[in-house]
Amino acid sequence: MIETVFLMIFSFGALIGAVAMFFLRHPMRVALALIGTMLSLAAIYAELGLHVIAVFQVLIYVGAVMVFMIYAIMLLDVRDRSFTERFSSLLVAGLAGLLLLLGVLVDGLLRAEPIAAAPVTEDVFRIGAFAIVFMDEFWVYFALAAVLLLVAEIAASAVIDVRRRGADAAASGKERGRG
């Protein structure tokens, strides 16, 4: 019983955060709303027994992804039309799409048969057991994920190099123009 209440509270929290993202103007505030949503989700994961996942949600998603986004927001402090006008030209169509998709999903959910829950032991997702299973059966995917991260790192470095080269050329061009 308390589970349901707990879940309802944090679900509500996640939804509030998501809806708030719609109406906030400043990207920084939007980011904070998203962080709120993510934290609520982490609480929900913890309630479901996935403690490891909850921790990683906070560590990776909030701690890395959103922080990076906030860096980007701070760097690109642009105050043009994209700042003053919140909504695009497809607002009405977007809202109609919202209702449509929500309707379809809820309809599908209501029609669906109840899901049979398998008997679960509490300890399955404890960090010790989980880590053993993770490294034992799924180590290939772990390695592949590492490769993916390596590639992403290289790609990011390449992108940064281009930016720096471009910046240098632009700078020297400006100097020549002035001199």
Binding site: L15, G94, L105
Partner: peptide, 24 residues
């Protein structure tokens, strides 16, 4: 309940991409 929340979050995300005018 949670699945409904999940679907709603997904929908809101997609509609948000359609509706907002800022790349970030």
């Amino acid at each position: 309940l949670l699945l409904a929340v999940s679907g709603t979050l997904f929908t809101l995300g997609l509609v948000g991409v359609i509706v907002r005018r800022n790349l970030l």
